[in-house]
Amino acid sequence: MAMIARRKTIMLDKITMINLVWTAMIAVMLTATVTLYQDKSQLADLNYPQVTGRYSDLSYY
Rank of each mutant, 00 (worst) to 15 (best):
residue 59 S to G: 10
residue 50 Q to L: 03
residue 19 N to F: 03
residue 50 Q to P: 02
residue 24 A to Q: 01
residue 10 I to Y: 03
residue 28 V to R: 00
residue 40 K to H: 03
residue 35 T to Q: 11
residue 33 T to F: 03
residue 3 M to S: 15
residue 38 Q to Y: 02
residue 48 Y to I: 01
residue 9 T to I: 14
residue 17 M to A: 09
residue 14 K to N: 14
residue 27 A to D: 03
residue 4 I to Y: 01
residue 59 S to Y: 14
residue 57 D to C: 06
residue 40 K to D: 04
residue 40 K to I: 01
residue 36 L to N: 03
residue 58 L to I: 01
residue 32 A to T: 15
residue 45 D to G: 02
residue 24 A to E: 11
residue 11 M to K: 03
residue 13 D to Q: 05
residue 28 V to C: 03
residue 41 S to F: 10
residue 60 Y to G: 10
residue 26 I to E: 09
residue 48 Y to G: 04
residue 19 N to G: 11
residue 37 Y to T: 08
residue 58 L to E: 04
residue 17 M to E: 15
residue 59 S to I: 10
residue 36 L to K: 01
residue 22 W to H: 08
residue 53 G to D: 08
residue 6 R to E: 14
residue 49 P to F: 02
residue 61 Y to R: 09
residue 60 Y to E: 05
residue 15 I to D: 06
residue 51 V to P: 03
residue 45 D to H: 10
residue 28 V to T: 07
residue 1 M to D: 15
residue 6 R to Y: 13
residue 14 K to Y: 15
residue 30 L to D: 07
residue 2 A to K: 03
residue 34 V to Q: 00
residue 12 L to E: 12
residue 5 A to R: 14
residue 50 Q to C: 03
residue 17 M to I: 11
residue 24 A to W: 11
residue 23 T to P: 00
residue 35 T to H: 08
residue 56 S to R: 05
residue 30 L to Q: 05
residue 35 T to D: 07
residue 17 M to L: 15
residue 21 V to Y: 00
residue 2 A to W: 06
residue 56 S to A: 06
residue 30 L to Y: 04
residue 8 K to L: 09
residue 46 L to V: 10
residue 22 W to N: 08
residue 36 L to I: 02
residue 31 T to S: 07
residue 35 T to F: 12
residue 3 M to T: 15
residue 51 V to H: 02
residue 48 Y to D: 06
residue 24 A to I: 06
residue 25 M to P: 00
residue 11 M to L: 05
residue 13 D to L: 06
residue 51 V to R: 08
residue 29 M to C: 13
residue 47 N to C: 07
residue 12 L to Q: 04
residue 30 L to W: 02
